[in-house]
Design a protein around this nucleic acid. Structure first.
Lengths: 149, 149
DNA sequence: AAAGATTGATCTGTCAATCTTT
DNA sequence: AAAGATTGACAGATCAATCTTT
């Protein structure tokens, strides 16, 4: 009864969700326990720092991120108060703003990565061999490509 | 420079996160657009309904779920107000409570599944072949097994 | 004292409405 | 009128403190 293709998909999906929850909560708690920036903040700073001049328009940043536009405004507010990001007006469009990673933000991200990356490597290595990891990457790239293409 | 095993892991991880965000937001918006229970509620009701007598101790439910214990209390409050769940005292331990899915909750879950499952099947089929899906399931079961075992 | 669960205070997220510029 | 972004009002999540029972 549980053998048809639909149920296979449903159980694959459940595994997917369960593994995601497990891994993210583990990694996130490691960051918090070390008194570092949160995972969300890490993602935002990374998006900025990987862009030219450490900056992205609010709308571009929102597109990279899970948050709604208004949620992002508030998140950037907080990060600005914390000194990790600053806002700059867009030169050619007076409606627009850039979010820019500050030096402090760049440093905070580097510190977080120095905890996060080894731990990610640890966790990942403890659950998948290098070959399996490559297999998984290949599958997921296909997922992304077909989902967005 | 991006060829060592650590960077492979990091990029696999990014793909994993990106695909998760993409798929969950898509599916969740489908539920909301249909005026049905949220995805979180679906997960909670499913956990209850798959347990004996449609019930689980609060602490057991919390273990199945992302939420913190206090977060779960509040969520169950709301679901109780909505009539989808009721609380019953545990017979042998007067500290404890069961969360029990009501008939209305069982029905609401069935309705949500009738939207969610076909859409999940749609999405999943559009991004992975049946063989790929089986491969992914196999990999993820290993992840879960090794992460929790 | 520890376990099961809830509550108070506070922070974060979201929707709809708003403001400014195009 | 539409695009870029923020704000007000409210719902949801989280931490620590609390209460009850073991």
């Amino acid at each position: 009864m549980l053998n048809n293709s639909k149920d296979k998909q449903l159980s694959a999906w459940r595994l997917y969700l369960a593994s995601h929850t497990h891994l993210t909560t583990h990694l996130d708690s490691h960051l918090k326990a070390s008194g570092l920036i949160s995972f969300d903040t890490l993602i935002i700073l990374t998006a900025l720092i990987e862009s030219p001049n450490n900056r992205l328009r609010m709308s571009e940043l929102a597109a990279n991120i899970t948050f709604s536009r208004s949620g992002l405004s508030r998140k950037v507010d907080r990060l600005e108060r914390a000194g990790l990001i600053r806002r700059e007006p867009a030169p050619n469009d007076r409606r627009g703003w850039y979010a820019v990673a500050t030096d402090e933000g760049i440093e905070a991200r580097a510190k977080a990565l120095s905890v996060y990356e080894p731990e990610l490597e640890n966790v990942w290595r403890s659950v998948l061999s290098e070959e399996e990891s490559a297999q998984l990457s290949a599958l997921l790239s296909e997922v992304i490509k077909r989902a967005t293409g």
